[in-house]
């Protein structure tokens, strides 16, 4: 085994900040949605608003970072070893077989992760923030001449749909973070930046 530096400090900062923001956005968002009472409606609305801005700013930076550093290529989907990875998670992992995919700084994500994150980045996130910002500026729609094109029903609907997808993604993602051996390996990598990979190749 050797240690490979995979996650730069910006990436780690981005990841954890986003994680915290999204947890609290979910909690406050679903209170606004009327699913439960937690902090109180007005408090949740206010919190959701601040956190949303945090997330928008964070994303703006992340997008810029992905473009300027070329890291966006990490998410180009590939079928290479896709089947092997799927077989690994449904069979090999139970018998402690080696992971069929080796990580390097240039290929941080296995093909399955690539697909999942691509979905997150191209579908869930954009839907969330486009619908969220429109939702936030509902009062300006008339001024901006959007009244005839949009209805809050659809904007809030899209936002809620994206929120559900986000929650599902979140649940799966948190679990997958522990699907490795030792089970804290991924977690540690996301904190320190170093992942242990097997020698060779």
């Amino acid at each position: 085994m050797k240690k490979v530096f995979i996650y730069s400090s910006f990436e780690r900062f981005w990841h954890w900040t986003q994680a915290v923001l999204i947890v609290f956005l979910m909690l406050s968002g679903f209170e606004v949605h009327g699913t439960y009472i937690l902090w109180g409606f007005e408090e949740s609305v206010q919190l959701h608003r601040y956190l949303a801005w945090g997330l928008v700013i964070l994303w703006a930076f992340a997008i810029f970072w992905h473009i300027t550093t070329g890291n966006w290529r990490q998410y180009i989907p590939t079928t290479q070893k896709l089947v092997e990875v799927m077989v690994y998670y449904t069979k090999g992992i139970f018998h402690h077989l080696p992971h069929p995919y080796k990580l390097t700084k240039l290929r941080k994500h296995n093909p399955l992760q690539r697909l999942a994150y691509l979905f997150f980045k191209l579908i869930i996130s954009p839907t969330t923030w486009v619908s969220g910002l429109l939702y936030m500026y509902f009062a300006e729609w008339t001024t901006w001449g959007l009244d005839g094109y949009l209805s809050l029903f659809w904007v809030a609907g899209a936002h809620t749909a994206a929120a559900f997808l986000m929650m599902a993604f979140f649940c799966g993602h948190v679990y997958m973070a522990f699907v490795c051996s030792p089970i804290t390996a991924h977690l540690r990598a996301m904190i320190t930046g170093y992942e242990e990979v097997e020698e060779g190749e």
Partner: peptide, 15 residues
Amino acid sequence: YMPGRDRFPLMDTMG
């Protein structure tokens, strides 16, 4: 549509 009052029953269930 009014937040907190209105839901999307089908979508909520599916979600």
